[in-house]
Amino acid sequence: MDQKLEGKPSASLRLDGRKVTRSEITNHWGTRLQWKISRDGKEIAAVTAGPEPVFEHADAAPGKYEIVLQQFHYVGYAKDKDGKFTTSKYVDISEPVTYTV
């Protein structure tokens, strides 16, 4: 019996300077959470989002930053020849927040 993750997780983000605080996650799938960080529209990092709700990205290079909380959506365990999941993937579970350095 493979697990089927139903519903959609959701969290809201609050920005204070460069510090991002997430709310509790509703419909938490239990899978890994990560902060996806983009600068000027290009993804530059994906960092594990641990139990602590606060995150501050260390990179201070000039640009427009966007941060969004993602969770791994397990659909099936199939992987390609490089070992990457083919159907399971990270999905956004919050609206992004943005700031400029």
Binding site: T31, R32, F72, Y74, K79, G83, K84, S88
Partner: peptide, 24 residues
């Protein structure tokens, strides 16, 4: 990590199994 029906890898541990166990 056999590439077939037993193809669990570190990716399963990291993204699914460890987080779900840790939480529950």
């Amino acid at each position: 990590a056999d590439g077939g029906s037993l193809n669990n890898t570190y990716a399963d541990y990291e993204h699914v199994l460890c987080p779900q166990f840790d939480l529950a």
